[in-house]
Simulated assay, not measured.
Amino acid sequence: MEGLLDHGLRDILTRVGGVDRCVSEFIRITDQLLPARSFTRVVPELLRGSRTRAGVPVRPQLLGSDPVCMAENAARLAELAPAGIDLNFGCPAKTVNRHRGGAVLLGEPELVHAIVAAVRRAVPADVPVSAKMRLGVDDEARLLDCAHAIDTAGAGELAVHARTKAHGYRPPAYWESVARVRQAVRLPVIANGDIWSVDDAARCRQVTGCGALMLGRGMVRRPGLALAIAAQGVRAAEPAASYGDAAVAALPWRRVVPLLADFWRDVCTRVERRHRAGRLKQWLNYLRVAYPEAQQAFDALRLVNDPEAIGAWLLSIEELPALVRRAPESENVQ
């Protein structure tokens, strides 16, 4: 999720709870041995024990097509004591695929095997190596070939996005195909794709047989989604008021507002001034699917690009939850 779910948003989302592990945006490997700063720039959590401030492990992800270069860079990355190393065979972006990276490699299971095996040999045994793949390039003809290639090469986990490269992100996600992979390999399989709600998570687990789920855009839309999924079967979820949404009930808007404010403060410390407003609007654009209040916020800021004006507006809405909490006490005093 390059350009969206970076370390700043990881830090915010993992505070909410329910997340066991994160995978970073991909780090592109070409023909060079990258310096340590190239890894810590994308995954600054490496400087904090490879964990977010909330203590959630972060696994850096590498993307490339040369087994030797991938192995050498994985070895360099391993020196920084990552929580693991993930390999990207799932990115459907045309620019990435044109340069032989991501999902396009699923047409070459032998190369996929060589990359995973080279990385596994290059890093210490105590550094987990995992991979993410799609169902194929244009179809599923080589789905199981690629899954077996990753399995036999020594990966410890496999996340499967339930679409081909050609599908992009268009619905539906083909969870039945993830079940085929799970039944065909020995390593644990993690299901990914179109998990937008607690109900989706339950159906995905039922169809795929996978206990572990990977959340992407669903978590950005509903920051309480992982928390609500984790609570499923442990305790009854609270009613979701008028929204009918367990993830929103787990994290109502009044609790999202401080996260938005913290996200904005972080953006202002590290993003160029001219791009700051866009980053906040990008997240609000996702949030408005689940929160009516986010739609109102998006509308209010649609034409605003001045960081000071946005900061003042956020400060005003950040104070609202506190006022709401104080209201009953004030009424009792009267």
Rank of each mutant, 00 (worst) to 15 (best):
D11S: 13
R270E: 14
G101L: 06
P128R: 01
S330C: 15
G84M: 04
Y291Q: 04
T208G: 08
S50F: 08
C210V: 11
A202C: 10
D262A: 15
C69G: 14
P258S: 05
M133Y: 02
L111H: 02
R326D: 15
V181S: 03
L9N: 08
H275K: 08
S316W: 11
F263V: 05
E331Y: 14
R76P: 08
A228E: 04
S177R: 15
T152D: 15
L215N: 07
E293W: 02
R10E: 15
E331G: 12
Q61T: 04
E72W: 07
W253Q: 00
A202W: 10
V116W: 09
A54K: 01
S316H: 14
H113G: 12
H113N: 13
N285Y: 13
T152M: 15
V127Q: 03
P171Y: 00
A184C: 07
L106P: 00
R325Q: 14
R51A: 12
A250R: 03
S330F: 15
A228G: 02
G101Q: 04
R222T: 11
G211A: 12
H7M: 08
E110K: 03
L315V: 10
V104P: 03
S24T: 11
K281R: 13
D299C: 09
L111F: 06
T208K: 01
R273W: 10
A202H: 08
A277C: 06
L105P: 02
L215C: 07
L213M: 06
G84Q: 03
A236Y: 11
P307G: 05
C204L: 06
A226N: 05
S197I: 08
M214F: 08
A155P: 01
S50T: 09
T14E: 01
D11C: 10
Y291L: 10
G193R: 02
A312T: 13
